[in-house]
Nucleic acid binder design. Sequence first.
DNA 1: CGCAAAAATGTAAGCGTGTACATTGTTGCA
DNA 2: TGCAACAATGTACACGCTTACATTTTTGCG
Lengths: 333, 333
Amino acid sequence: MIRRKGLTSVELAKLAGVSSATISRAFSNDPRIKPETRERVLALAAEHGFRPNAMARSLNNSRSRLVALVVNTVANPAEAEGLDLLIHRLQERELMPLLLCCANHEDRGHLMRIASTYQVDHVVLYSDAVSVDDALDIFRSATLIVASSEPLEGRALFDVRLDATAATAQIVDHLVGQGRRHFVYLSGRASSHIDKQRMRWFADALARHGMAFEIVEHGDYSYESGYKEAALLLRRLRPDVLVCANDLMAIGAKDAAALLGLKVADDVAIVGHDGVSLSNWDSHSITTILPPAGIVSDALAQFISLTPASEPQQRVVDCMVRWGRSTGEFPRH
Amino acid sequence: MIRRKGLTSVELAKLAGVSSATISRAFSNDPRIKPETRERVLALAAEHGFRPNAMARSLNNSRSRLVALVVNTVANPAEAEGLDLLIHRLQERELMPLLLCCANHEDRGHLMRIASTYQVDHVVLYSDAVSVDDALDIFRSATLIVASSEPLEGRALFDVRLDATAATAQIVDHLVGQGRRHFVYLSGRASSHIDKQRMRWFADALARHGMAFEIVEHGDYSYESGYKEAALLLRRLRPDVLVCANDLMAIGAKDAAALLGLKVADDVAIVGHDGVSLSNWDSHSITTILPPAGIVSDALAQFISLTPASEPQQRVVDCMVRWGRSTGEFPRH
DNA sequence: CGCAAAAATGTAAGCGTGTACATTGTTGCA
DNA sequence: TGCAACAATGTACACGCTTACATTTTTGCG
């Protein structure tokens, strides 16, 4: 299994009869090189399988083209589907994603500290499980790009933020119009910012009808927790409407309702969040709140092309509703 | 948004009143340093937030602690769930995963070539979409670790390979015992090695009963393709048993059957592959073939701890059956 | 106490590239 | 032809660390 190591720019330079500086210029599209020699060098490089060493490269211009992606877990479709798009955007720009999976990892700080030694250019915070302050503290010289929901309060960052005010109101209006009165919210993690945010949207939308809702705080964003908690609360509280912190829990709740002999939509309407593709499957058909397709990844990728010296920016993305059968008949247009 | 850069080992050395070599030794657990000075250096480093630069580090010992993970897409639970475990194993060993998502990427070679410039120590081929030869060719000096199903034929590699002979036979025996006779296999991608392998297992298991099966080759591993193709073939071929290339397609097929008014298990048994968690949900309950939990990731992680000079190894993992309601009553153990 | 061996640290030369600066080759124009 | 301006390339050092080798300090023991 021993394999030969590639050659270096000096060796290639010797082969090409030029200096290593010329090699470097050929590969960095330096305009000061004669197009003709550039071609010659690149051809020779291809022939010998030479590619400049990214480590050496980034050592002296301190741009690594690495992007740290901080997520909870890749096993959860809600994160994975967004992540997949984002990774594609990065790859289009020849940026390399370094993946940090923080779920089940007691010491996220340690994980981030290791990643930071690779001199990543950017950090995308895609997870609520990591605090912005920690990330800022650890990734000193990288630009931080936030897609979690932690309030930023003036800390200078690139920031993509969701707004589901309208979408939530749309759903609430529809459900209230159907005569439903008893709303319960099954939360994901009590400490999660996005969860608090979502509850606030629901509170606001219900307040316009002079209504409120109950909160059950035992979920953890998994199907299993949705199933288990819904089985308990459906019996105990008998709500009209069960709003879940995410689609996976909503599907779990739907299955639990079926187990209890309740008819989804007729007996209890179920609402999810995130719009993962499987919530749209025939067997689930959950009404859910989601950002327009790909827009978050696009925004993140756009931020990444800015330089660390740029002014902090924020983008607000308006969410929409994807109606499913879990809330009964669809609203007319 | 301008932030200060961290200090270097020479600067820290000055502060500690030692040489930069001592700093280096403190951080690489060199036994030749006095424990007492090591503590002092580490304390000072922590105080000043110093961490050795991984780029510079790997530049001269040519070990980057980076692992390239070549997958199709992270959006598919079948890959994502395995990947998640693997990433955790890597993180335990303080290895950093570089993620390459090859699906929808016309030039996988280019992607891998870029990754190779980062001097990755290992490459895990988790995808059938990339040929082993290409990977070998591009990642010259990294150890290649294969979890795809391409036959290796003596090419020296670390290799994790699935064996579902027994599991497949178990399912086939059960289904034949129920009196089913008409088997159809809905394939994922015609060119996919794992798919061919799975069909072979089924062919062998059926051959023991003197039976054979039909093949429909239009799937692409997605729920949608399972749904669409099953809707067509269930009407056309009216099989007893529909075996799908993976669980997502099996779930699609199940939904299509429901749409056609067919009762799953009674009218048509459905079998999946991979054992993704959602195939075990109440609403799906697909009988599926899967490797024991975590064993593949564990094997991969174990291989990764070997050195490039080690002898090539192979591990064969025996798959098992997870019974669901999609194949009727469970077999008495 | 003295001296050899061992332990601890320092010195300096890379690792493979980018880049400021120096050098050489070329062109234009009087 | 001569000389300025510019285009193309070369030279040499820096990036931040590891490590072979040199040097200093400590230890053990007769």
